[in-house]
Design a protein around this nucleic acid. Structure first.
Lengths: 153, 153
DNA sequence: TTAAATTTGATTGGATTGGTCAAGATTCAC
DNA sequence: GTGAATCTTGACCAATCCAATCAAATTTAA
């Protein structure tokens, strides 16, 4: 798994949206300022998130974006899969984006068996963490920066 | 972490080298045939592995490649770091390839704390697995293909 | 109606990827 | 030695992806 800047911005934006009350929208400019994200680029990203169904928008002078579901029900894995594709390090062990590789026999490929473990470790974490967790952590970190980064989910 | 085809080929090639006795060299053509890897491309990759110190070569008519250390002492993490760069999904949580990101305060970044966990999970696996493990697994899989892919390292 | 904001889609420059090719250097068998 | 087999080096290429920008259209509150 690799998170491009695009995906990073998306998750940071979702965190901001998750932090503000569900019933009011947040302007692109606000997110852009708070998170230090190029505005034009953020427009594009939020639009992707909208067509993917994670957020909804309201246009016009009082417009902006908000989450379209409860933050607890947006797993990070879902967001990342939508923006970046597979979680797995290689296609031949991906559940949602499987693709055959060039090795002569997948069922006997030692590398594949190792990569499968890596994939599972990543998926396990990201399926169980949601935007709500990001919000929670952001709150905690605001009080106690870094805090050793020790979490148990 | 993401494994490009280049990295995949490298690890498969190392497995082949690990399978043959330490004191004799294996020809590029042999590896290329056995693992179904484009020969020209493999030359390039083996050369990288050589300058990185993982393998050594012998030229001439009786030439070829072999591991330059015991397979037990070549962690997969080391190989991947050399060929692909960081294991971490983002630079700001990488141990060996750290790079600052754009967020206003890293020590309070919720996304970063999550990504740190992902990085640690990946690193934990790949630091502890070596080329010797690939060889072992290849042997086991030859007898019992796929075997549910259940390993505990 | 008009000003502020989002929406949409095209475009750009640059980096990365997977891969090929040609020419040279090295070594060993005979 | 000489030739054959091999490794070594580095240039090259087409395709794709990335981050970012721009212009124009659309929407809506006041």
């Amino acid at each position: 798994m690799k998170l491009s800047v695009r995906g990073e911005y998306a998750l940071r934006a979702l965190t901001v949206l998750g932090e503000s009350p569900r019933d009011c929208v947040v302007r692109i400019q606000t997110i852009s300022d708070r998170e230090n994200i190029p505005k034009r680029f953020l427009e594009q990203i939020l639009n992707e998130l909208r067509t993917a169904g994670f957020v909804e928008s309201r246009r016009g002078i009082a417009g902006g974006y908000r989450l379209s579901r409860a933050p607890e029900s947006i797993p990070l894995a879902a967001v990342i899969r939508h923006l970046e594709g597979k979680l797995a390090p290689v296609g031949c062990v991906s559940e949602k984006f499987y693709e055959r590789c060039s090795c002569p026999d997948e069922s006997r490929c030692a590398l594949r068996s190792v990569m499968k473990e890596v994939r599972d470790a990543i998926a396990n974490l990201l399926e169980n963490l949601t935007v709500a967790d990001l919000v929670k952590r952001a709150g905690a970190l605001r009080v106690k920066p870094d805090m050793g980064l020790d979490y148990s989910i």
